[in-house]
């Protein structure tokens, strides 16, 4: 890395990839993978997402680990970002719920309200 321009070019490319700019129907699944999340069982959740999405051959869906969002009591937390701009946070996710999210939300496009963080907390 020699110049700021070089960095900025990389930034643009990464940004577009991360936020699925220009991808239709792109989905980014963020699994909270800090110590809290891991302690609460994030690993099987993450694995479920990866495996099922691979099995379904969904090449516009990316599963990624992220750090702690701060809501430790509701871990594991999964956030679904879609290229249409919508964001959904699911909490207390188990591997079973993860399968359900893949099937209902990611494949069919139906948000599952009962697992939403906003619903659980209230």
């Amino acid at each position: 890395m020699k110049t700021l321009e070089e960095l900025k070019a990389l930034r643009k490319k990464s940004y577009e990839k991360m936020y699925m700019i220009g991808v239709t129907g792109g989905v980014r699944v963020q699994v909270g993978y800090g110590t809290c999340g891991i302690a609460a069982g994030a690993k099987p959740v993450y694995d479920t997402f990866v495996n099922e999405i691979k099995a379904l051959n969904l090449d516009n869906v990316e599963v990624t680990q992220v750090g702690c969002m701060g809501e430790c009591a509701f871990e594991p937390i999964v956030e679904i970002l879609e290229s249409n701009g919508s964001k959904t946070i699911y909490c207390l996710v188990t591997d079973r719920i993860a399968s359900e999210i893949v099937e209902e939300h990611i494949v069919k496009g139906n948000r599952i309200d009962k697992y939403l963080l906003s619903k659980t907390k209230r």
Partner: peptide, 10 residues
């Protein structure tokens, strides 16, 4: 503390 306080006690 192992830093998983949200899930206390651990």
């Amino acid at each position: 503390c192992i830093g998983a306080c949200g899930l206390a006690p651990i």
